[in-house]
């Protein structure tokens, strides 16, 4: 893991906490935490674009949804689809979609990038809404969870809630480690440069568009991983998975959690997801409360939750990058 040791310890403790949770927590919350961890993967993937490459995508949910649809379409009625087939196909499909969308999008920047990514996501949204073969507005059911094993021998039964929990937790950690590795590698140095000063990065000898495109594809693929897990977990996928509200939500997790740190967006997803759940119990009009909460955070917590944590903990060196002004 990256960062100074207090942060590493905190993150290890958090993973440890998540690892023991299924044995102490209420089954309802186990289900909820699976959902939150999936959103955490989704938010981290967007942060690679927003927090590290400087590209604000308002259509990131497209890849989340496309992956889910691929899983739903692949899974036969009788079930038994091997994860060694399902996962690569879903990830490769999402990567290709991200390559196409990214190829068009990285030519633009700023608000035009925000809008063109939104436009592509809307195209995908309406494609699934208007094609009855794909379930239209009702969406599709995933007939069965993928089979994890070799030959007939089962490694992990995803139908079991605890197994699915640990499967998701494992992928959350793997995603974090992979992204941290990419960010420390030469590629990560270049995309950070692009975010800080693209023209100068180009002048130093980097074909920046190519780097932005690859970053877009990587982010899309990890969003696909999250979408795969979501569809497998709920056994359902619908156009709302790729709608702009979903893209807006994940954007919110990243900003509220704190851009430019990998743990920030996960924190954002957990905090917002839990609040959503609490408000939902409290009042039928929880969106009203959520709205006021979001506004309050924007006005009073400019660096997100991670910024607050960093300020309180006086963490040095590994704190969040400066938010853009």
């Amino acid at each position: 893991m990256t960062g100074p040791w207090p942060l590493r310890l905190t993150l290890l403790a958090a993973v440890g906490g998540l690892a023991v949770f299924p044995w102490v927590g209420d089954p309802f919350y186990v289900e909820l935490v699976i959902h939150l961890m999936i959103l955490g993967i989704f938010a981290m993937s967007l942060d690679l674009l927003m927090g590290y490459t400087g590209l604000v995508s308002f259509g990131h949910a497209a890849f989340f949804g496309i992956s889910g649809y691929l899983l739903a379409l692949m899974t036969p009625e009788s079930g038994g689809l091997s994860i060694w087939l399902a996962l690569p196909v879903c990830l490769a499909g999402t990567a290709v979609a991200a390559l196409v969308v990214g190829w068009f999008s990285v030519r633009t920047s700023g608000i035009y990038f925000i809008m063109i990514t939104l436009a592509f996501a809307q195209m995908a949204f309406f494609f699934f809404v208007e094609h009855q073969d794909f379930g239209g507005t009702d969406g599709l059911f995933v007939a069965d969870k993928p089979f994890v094993g070799f030959g007939g021998w089962q490694l992990l039964d995803l139908r079991d809630e605890h197994s699915f929990y640990f499967f998701t937790l494992g992928l959350l950690v793997v995603t974090y480690l992979l992204l941290a590795m990419i960010l420390r590698a030469p590629f990560g140095q270049v995309i950070r440069g692009i975010r800080a000063n693209e023209a100068r990065t180009r002048a130093l000898g980097y074909p920046t568009q190519r780097y932005k495109l690859i970053s877009f594809v990587i982010a899309g693929t990890f969003a696909g991983l999250a979408g795969f897990l979501e569809a497998a977990h709920t056994e359902y996928v619908s156009p709302s998975h790729l709608g702009w509200h979903e893209s807006g939500l994940v954007l919110m997790y990243v900003i509220l959690g704190g851009m430019g740190t990998l743990y920030g967006p996960v924190l954002g997803a957990f905090v917002m997801g839990l609040l959503h759940d609490q408000f939902q119990d409290l009042t039928e009009h929880f969106n009203l409360v959520m709205g006021f909460f979001v506004i309050a955070v924007v006005l009073f917590l400019p660096d997100g939750v991670a910024g607050l944590v960093a300020r309180l903990g006086r963490a040095r060196g590994g704190g969040p990058a400066d938010p853009p002004r």
Partner: peptide
């Protein structure tokens, strides 16, 4: 930028 490529994802820079 003087390396052949920076499309390298594994080893720390």
């Amino acid at each position: 930028s003087r390396e052949r490529t920076s499309m390298r994802f594994l080893r720390p820079a």
